[in-house]
Design a protein around this nucleic acid. Structure first.
Lengths: 343, 343
DNA sequence: ATAGATTCTGTAAGCGTTTTCTCGGTTTTT
DNA sequence: AAAAACCGAGAAAACGCTTACAGAATCTAT
């Protein structure tokens, strides 16, 4: 059986109270000699407090729940990592729910986390979560008094603490850069259009076109899924429409375009310029290096946990919901070619 | 405040006992009418049992701990996902510890998990964990009576339940395939040589060479880190030695070779053949598609959790440690060229 | 009618902690 | 020498739940 505080008490000859007091460094008038004895027998027995018991009593578990759509998508696996790092820095650990983008699991995991009495939750919803369920989920958390922070994908019709990267700006920066490189016919390979993320990046794309007086042509927009599988279809559309550059709404889809291009004997960047989104580790490793929009993943994790722990530690007072919007950044590598002005 | 069983009891007019009995579907002679009333008020109040309380009492938390070295390495992020899927299938959730390959955190997380009274632990140790600490860690778990399964990287000097993929076979298959394609001067780009994983893959490489009477030349072996950073150094060695093919001990390093090759104007596969290891999603997406050794990640997760839950459910009886060795598989894509026999 | 069997429901202990309160024993003060 | 002050340490309640056990109420059989 595991060593309990009772064992330490018995062995050291003190009461449970005294042991607890000493072990928790409470200010108390227990003489140094007793103190040392207790400390050393606890050490000797390898005593570690049972967190369930402590949690039950104190109503704090130092556990955070993390819900993400897909840990095999590098953006999210890097995000998990950054959340984990930020959490451990503050003494919290993570229970982790990967929904595999099956949206009913969002709710399942939230319930589970609540049952485990997590102190707070970081959530990025599934791609196809219906608005109604989204609201139901978050209301469930509110009703149960569990602080939470929504990350990356914004809920519709619900205002809460949130950390995002400005996707409109990101889409705008990517497109503008392509235009400045002389491109006029620019394809857009989007994520699921039900997500604010995709929609906003598309908005940025449109905004940049408009600014440079380029007509927006919806036939140059192909919807993808932030993963692979649609690149061939997209490629055939782009070739057909003779685009000279493509804005891919994430890096994985950009790699898909790399492959499709190679298959069709199209050279990147000389015949087709490509820009991605996310700046995952691999961008540096592929050839040609992928020019992309950097998302500050470490900051996202850090900010989410910062806000969440703030919420937890001030759970008595109602604070105005904090929305942290981070800025994306253009990272230039070698997947884009500048074409001569006027031709 | 959260709804407790007491609230349900009060509201429905029954005792706590009756409510618990009904809610847990215990066989009992509570009449259907009372039963229904209890069920409906529980539902109405949105009652969910507090897992801390249940765990404290039953000494079962339905929580599994997962320790992995680096979630930003795709092999491990896919592994986390597969472990998670296997766990949820059996009603367990995951507390998740990413050590970022800082080996002191292996122990930290194990302690934490024990404190949280997890029912069992799945562990893949950090790359540079000294043997002594490795043993200390696993003995700690034994002493605390926490079942565990070691995955992928084997501990030295400790026998326990384990799931691995046969790395020797994998290295052998990769090398043999290159030889059969006519290659004779084959470079080997390894992982950290302190890991059994790397060592065994190297053994397989040697074994294949030997089988075909090719002299093993240690100058063709370059140690990497399973990540990026050493590819340029490796490439210069390989070019210098005029190898025609490279066996990379994981896919990420193979992608590194892709890049280094491109930088030096070397074409893959026509001028240099490359084989990887792991078969992560990206292999299909890069160009040319990477021929590689497939590791059955889903099976690894499934087997680990299967063994672990078996251990948990039979924790009374001592069972012989189960070592499950899975088989790797060659996946042929387009990164290897066959060279004419004799020239 | 009364004992015995059968249904139903409640009491209470216990899981491992923390923390408030109380109390016995010293020492100090007058 | 008696009262006051102080020090050190333990008893007990509480957190939310499960479950063995006891008990009340109803019904059956003699």
């Amino acid at each position: 059986m595991r060593v309990t505080i009772k064992d330490v008490a018995k062995k050291s000859g003190f009461s449970i109270t005294s042991v607890s007091l000493v072990l928790n460094n409470k200010e108390t008038k227990i003489p140094e000699s007793s103190r040392q004895l207790i400390l050393s027998t606890a050490e000797e027995l390898g005593y570690r407090p049972n967190r369930l018991a402590v949690g039950l009593l104190k109503k704090k578990t130092k556990l955070l729940g993390l819900v993400i759509p897909d840990n095999s998508n590098m953006f999210f696996s890097e995000l998990s990592k950054s959340v984990e790092i930020a959490a451990r820095k503050r003494g919290y650990s993570l229970i982790y729910g990967n929904t595999s983008d099956v949206y009913s699991r969002d709710y399942e995991y939230l319930k589970l986390f609540v049952d485990h009495q997590v102190d707070g939750i970081v959530i990025t919803k599934s791609s196809h979560l219906p608005e109604k369920e989204d609201i139901r989920n978050l209301e469930f958390l509110q009703k149960n008094n569990v602080p939470f922070v929504v990350v990356d994908r914004q809920p519709k019709g619900f205002h809460s603490d949130m950390v995002t990267v400005n996707n409109t700006t990101g889409g705008y920066m990517a497109t503008k850069y392509l235009i400045e490189c002389g491109h006029r016919k620019i394809g857009c390979f989007t994520g699921p259009l039900g997500l604010t993320t995709s929609q906003q990046r598309l908005d940025g794309y449109k905004k940049a076109l408009e600014e440079f007086n380029i007509r927006y042509d919806e036939n140059l927009v192909v919807e993808g899924n932030f993963s692979s599988g649609f690149e061939d279809k997209a490629m055939s559309v782009f070739l057909n429409k003779k685009v000279t550059a493509v804005f891919c709404q994430n890096d994985i889809m950009a790699f898909g375009i790399y492959r499709a291009a190679n298959k069709s004997g199209i050279k990147i960047p000389s015949q087709l310029s490509v820009i991605g989104y996310d700046n995952i580790n691999l961008c540096d490793i592929v050839y040609p290096g992928l020019t992309t929009i950097h998302q500050p993943i470490d900051q996202i994790g850090e900010e989410s946990v910062r806000i969440l722990t703030k919420l937890i530690e001030n759970s008595n007072q109602k604070i105005e919901a904090e929305v942290k919007e981070l800025e994306p950044k253009l990272v230039i590598r070698n997947s884009i070619i500048s074409i001569v002005e006027g031709e």
